[in-house]
Amino acid sequence: MTAAAAAEPAQSLAQPLVHAVNVTKSFHHNEVLKGIDLDVDRGQVVCLLGPSGSGKTTFLRCVNQLETIDGGRIWVDGELMGYADRDGKLYRLKNKEIAAQRREIGMVFQRFNLFPHMTALQNIIEAPTQVRGESRKSARERAMKLLDRVGLADRCNAYPAQLSGGQQQRIAIARALAMQPKLMLFDEPTSALDPELVGEVLAVMRELALDGMTMIVVTHEMSFAREVADTVVFMDAGVVVEAGPPKDVISNPQHSRTQAFLSRLRSEHEHP
């Protein structure tokens, strides 16, 4: 643990892994996040639901500083993301320090974003060898284990263009896991997939959750949220409308906006 983290008084395992307070973010005078509070405990899976434009993806990107926040604070494992707090004043961290913070957080994108000029295996070992200075041999060994875990050990030498969407996304998950992150962020990981390929990606994510990985998942897959999530957060127009266990929020929503969203999703599902 770093000296800065030790100096903060309340750093214990009882603290949530992710602690977001009053996070705000605007794009060109358009307020996308209007004060988001969110805690995620270690080993928890949180699913963010909500209509498009509700700010779910933006919030996810704020957690690992792909977007800078305008107000509020986000801590991950006791570390304030993107800033140094000196006597209550915030100072933006150097890019190198932010990069170091991001190493602890894996991210999976809607469009996979695998590196097209590298094989599956190279995609996975690139960051551990370049960023962590791990030897190629040990990175390779771990990568092969991860490929085995996502069921693609036999495709280790394939280039992304030679893989199906579902396979690419599973490689992308393995790539993120290769950095041994404390937290995994999933940004609509199955939205760009053909329907028959969704299952294989959700299966990998389900297993990851069972292994105790802390996950924040932006998704429209209700059955996944119902089965796997510990907490479901419903967002609309930049605020958290309602949050709680899936059996409450999905099966018995209290807020009219949640009810409207879920019934719209259900009818789309039945009559696509």
């Binding site: 792909l66 990069a99 170091a100 190493r103 957080i105 994108f109 469009r111 974003n113 993120a176 950095m179």
Partner: peptide
Amino acid sequence: KGQIEAARSLGMPA
């Protein structure tokens, strides 16, 4: 742009 974001999300410096 997604390529740069993927690289950044893995903690690669610029």
